[in-house]
Design a protein around this nucleic acid. Structure first.
Lengths: 158, 158
DNA sequence: CTTGTGTGGTTGCAATATTAAACCGTATGC
DNA sequence: GCATACGGTTTAATATTGCAACCACACAAG
């Protein structure tokens, strides 16, 4: 009766959700990408129970999304920062943000806008492109079975 | 002790997660975007308990992600199809997929590739662009407070 | 060195959510 | 008309979440 794990699923969407698809992880990752690093910062920002935060941080570290580093202020505590794998989640956060911006019933409750730091102007909407540069909607795409993995034939027999 | 709702949060990421950020909703939406429409199709595909599926479908309909339509095969049943608001989630699914493709420890377990239906070639990676066309990473962006909502001044006093 | 306080957790218990399985009403299918 | 499939609802067991109390350690003051 455990919550069913999606880890073995062959769908890449399910596999991603298995890693950070629970109720709090993406918000922790969002906070981390905004520069929050300390247990207390996450807890104050998110308002979640400390035991939940502790287990989430632990599993995110285990899964290679976050890593712990010695505190930057010289104290004996540790801080949590994103790994490259964690930074790779950024486009997902942007996609979530843009969906709310476009479809939320109460857009006036949205507090912030994502801007290009250099020019200070709002970013463009994420768009999916074909290799020859056309913008693709969902209906313009399809799923193809992945080609079988390349076997390292020489090594396979050793 | 209810699971804390994120509905009133001012962060657009949290607001999106409040709508479809639970363990199953995004997978239902993924299935819907693949053309699955019937209760039984979702249940067989996802392997989740039927009561959970029933409540998820109900709330997704309430929230305007799915809508029910009369069954396409003429039977008395109903089917669930994405609304425009639901179709808007497609980029999020793509972003999740691409994250797995890039960072998963066992990429050989991924079954499918997303291709451009027209040419049959893999799509490009989603990228975030500034208004003048530069590709932006997380570090090239910032958050700005949203300008106050435009008040309809004339109407405000009536 | 002793006390006090802030940080970063852990533990225990109550509430809620998820699950599997049994059950049920309505349509078709024969 | 009878059986069976579909689309759920109900029930009971188990898991997860949330809150609050507690605790250990670091650091600072006296």
């Amino acid at each position: 009766m455990k919550r069913t794990s999606l880890a073995g699923d062959s769908c890449p969407v399910a596999r991603a959700l298995d890693v950070f698809g629970d109720w709090w992880s993406l918000l922790i990752i969002r906070d981390a990408s905004l520069g929050r690093r300390r247990f207390g910062e996450f807890q104050a920002s998110l308002g979640l129970a400390k035991n939940i935060l502790a287990t989430r941080l632990r599993t995110l570290v285990e899964r290679g999304i976050l890593k712990t580093v010695p505190a930057s202020d010289g104290s004996a505590y540790q801080e949590y920062v994103l790994t490259p794998k964690g930074h790779g989640i950024f486009p997902i956060l942007v996609a979530l943000r843009q969906w709310t911006e476009e479809f939320d019933e109460h857009p006036n409750e949205i507090a912030t806008i994502l801007i290009d730091r250099d020019k200070g102007k709002p970013v463009k909407k994420l768009a999916l492109y074909s290799q020859d540069g056309r913008v693709l909607g969902a209906a313009d795409t399809a799923l193809k079975p992945r080609p079988a993995a390349k076997r390292a034939r020489r090594l396979a027999s050793t």
